[in-house]
Design a binder for these strands. Structure first.
Length: 274
DNA sequence: CAGATGCCCTGGGCGC
DNA sequence: TGCGCCCAGGGCATCT
């Protein structure tokens, strides 16, 4: 989604703004966001974890977008019929519209001040995102950094991977996929990993996220996740455990298991992830 | 303090 | 066909 925004909306001006959803803009008065966006020039989108950051004008402020469970950003011609649960529409100077659609209304938009990022660099992170840990695809997230972070942690590995304060951007699908790739059980105490296991985990997280982006994300049965043009991703067809309960493990042929953890599903192969 | 639980919502799938 | 239940890519407040 970040790549799509960078390709399609960077350099456009916002010519009109309509916010109709009561919950979609909730960190600030909707009128403040509308007035700040109207007439703004959109910069090249950045990303920290699951948050999208679209710099405004000189980059001193940024539009922050989180899709949560069911949010979509769609780029359409103005005449297109408005999908149900469309909560915000930005008119763009190229005549198209950027629409935020979100049935469950967990997603949100807000405008925040962004510290300057230096010449040529993207703006820094807004204060509202200060709690986020490093993005696992950023250069700073090395195996050594991961290993230091794991020391003394008693949490189960999967829950720590999904803790956005620890590392930002891994959710329920990609934690399961990365743990399978790393051949690690989800309920290992995070601090119990050996050096070799830390290396495997680090490699697996980065490979899983990179591959998922290459394949344009995971669109599950309800096809909630789609790109700017409504096209679903492809990575769901490459999942090795997530959503594959009872199907054969791609590595050993044994059945993929589903276990409930913290009220959500965890998928794993108990043979390959001892 | 870390960890567990429940809630914010709508919609789809399934059993009866 | 319809009802009630369970489940779903996340994050946060509130308990212990």
């Amino acid at each position: 989604m970040r790549r799509g925004l960078a390709l399609e909306v960077a350099g456009r001006d916002v010519t009109s703004v309509a916010v109709t959803g009561a919950r979609t803009v909730r960190r600030q008065p909707a009128v403040a966001l509308v007035e700040r966006l109207r007439g703004a020039r959109l910069g090249e989108a950045g990303r920290i974890g699951k948050f999208l950051l679209v710099p405004l004008d000189d980059g001193a402020e940024t539009l922050v977008i989180h899709l949560r469970m069911s949010g979509q950003l769609l780029l359409t011609a103005p005449g297109w019929p408005l999908a149900k649960h469309t909560h915000a529409v930005l008119g763009l100077s190229d005549g198209r519209e950027l629409r935020f659609v979100d049935p469950r209304t967990f997603g949100e938009l807000f405008v925040a001040a962004a510290p300057p990022g230096g010449p040529g660099a993207p703006p820094g992170r807004p204060a509202a995102l200060a709690h986020l840990g490093p993005d696992p695809l950023s250069p700073g997230w090395s195996a050594a950094v991961l290993g230091r972070g794991l020391i003394g942690r008693t949490a189960r590995l999967k829950l720590l991977l999904m803790d956005q304060r620890f590392v930002a951007g891994i959710g329920n699908i990609y934690s399961d996929e990365a743990l399978f790739e790393a051949r690690l059980r989800f309920d290992r105490p995070a601090g119990s990993l050996s050096g070799d296991e830390i290396g495997r985990l680090h490699r697996a997280v980065r490979k899983t996220l990179r591959d998922a982006v290459t394949h344009r994300g995971s669109s599950l049965r309800d096809a909630q996740y789609v790109d700017l043009f409504g096209a679903p991703g492809d990575y769901q067809n490459r999942h090795r455990v997530y959503g594959r309960e009872g199907e054969p493990c791609t590595r050993c042929g044994g059945p993929v298991r589903r276990i409930s953890l913290g009220g959500r599903s965890t998928f794993l192969c108990e043979t390959c992830q001892p």
